[in-house]
Design a binder for these strands. Structure first.
Lengths: 189, 189
DNA sequence: GTTTTTTGCCTAATATCATTAGTTTTTATG
DNA sequence: CATAAAAACTAATGATATTAGGCAAAAAAC
């Protein structure tokens, strides 16, 4: 019986593709075993357990998002950079809901420290450079923007904006304008 | 064999309690069957399936959150009301993470229309009354605030603010101040 | 009170997913 | 070529979920 030639990387890649096509919940060890035409137990030679596989997919998804964020803020600052970054988040969530969901898989501190999540925070700080905030205020602003990006995408994906007008596009734009305005005149303590 | 006296309401209540104690993921038909000392298949006389049960729990959790929101904005408007509402969201998420997660369970349009989620939106609009926004701008603001509340709680619960200073409390306060400032001078199109 | 109907709970079966321990076979290494 | 390492398999186990049919408790009807 020749070996199929599985590897951890292959499983993670295939898992991410499956997440993108059918949603993160469709990613199971059983599904991947079927895809590679091996017995399920064979996968344990390459991943510790289901959670280990999903962690790998989450890290890959975060890196994918971070790549796009880095590209978006490159050569930009201030309002333009923030808007570009916001667009990246929203487009990623809308175009790749399965991968977006994967980015939300819980990671431990060590995993998070080396992840695309940190790169995202750096891209956000780079985008905020044009606002001239202090170091502490920059963190507050990163958290404010990060919360808005995440919350908006989740609410939109969940259909929360589907039952009322105006269209979400406009709310997104107006929300960014409001945030830009307040960043320009950041309140002092 | 005397009947245990199960009912749909009892199962939903017990499920919500279990979610609160051990997290939403711990809520399974099997777990509830054990708790009531009946065979799992018996539960199907009261709920259609696992999703039906979880939908019921989600609606109960949303109502619980909405009750707190209504109480918080009662007799308040403007900055004070928004801050109280924000606190309710954040406290609920932090004190009842299992129930908070339940509120995020997907609902169809009909279920959502009659849910505590609509009451939350109303409480939000009531809180915004003090800012004198137009009807359309009010929707944008509801979505901006709702996104921030949800996003902040999720990031905080996920440990995203655990690896850096300043403490999340301060970021939350400063974020609200920034949002208050921009609501006061809402950008015109 | 008795009889009939409804409905709650159980049994049996089935399906799916996940994990572990040990075995066999393939591939890599010396 | 022989040996060791590792990939893939087998068997077993455990957990969750759902369906169909049967039995008996409780409710409804007489």
């Amino acid at each position: 019986m020749p070996r199929v030639g599985l590897s951890r990387e292959k499983l993670i890649e295939a898992g991410a593709s499956l997440a993108d096509r059918e949603g993160f919940a469709a990613v199971t060890l059983a599904a991947l075993a079927r895809q590679f035409e091996v017995k399920l137990a064979s996968l344990y030679a390459h991943v510790r357990n289901s959670e280990d596989l999903k962690t790998g997919i989450a890290l890959l998804a975060l890196d994918s998002l971070a790549d796009r964020a880095d590209a978006a803020v490159s050569g930009r600052a201030g309002k333009e950079a923030v808007a570009a970054l916001a667009e990246v988040h929203r487009r990623f969530a809308a175009d790749h809901p399965g991968l977006f969901e994967a980015t939300r898989f819980p990671l431990n501190a060590e995993q998070a420290a080396g992840s695309g999540g940190m790169r995202l925070a750096r891209a956000m700080r780079a985008a905020l450079r044009g606002y001239g905030l202090s170091e502490a205020d920059e963190v507050h602003a990163v958290r404010l923007l990060g919360s808005f990006f995440l919350g908006f995408s989740l609410l939109e994906l969940g259909g929360n904006f589907a039952h009322s007008q105006p269209a979400p596009d406009l709310s997104f734009t107006r929300g960014l304008e409001a945030l830009d305005a307040t960043l320009k005149t950041w309140v002092k303590s």
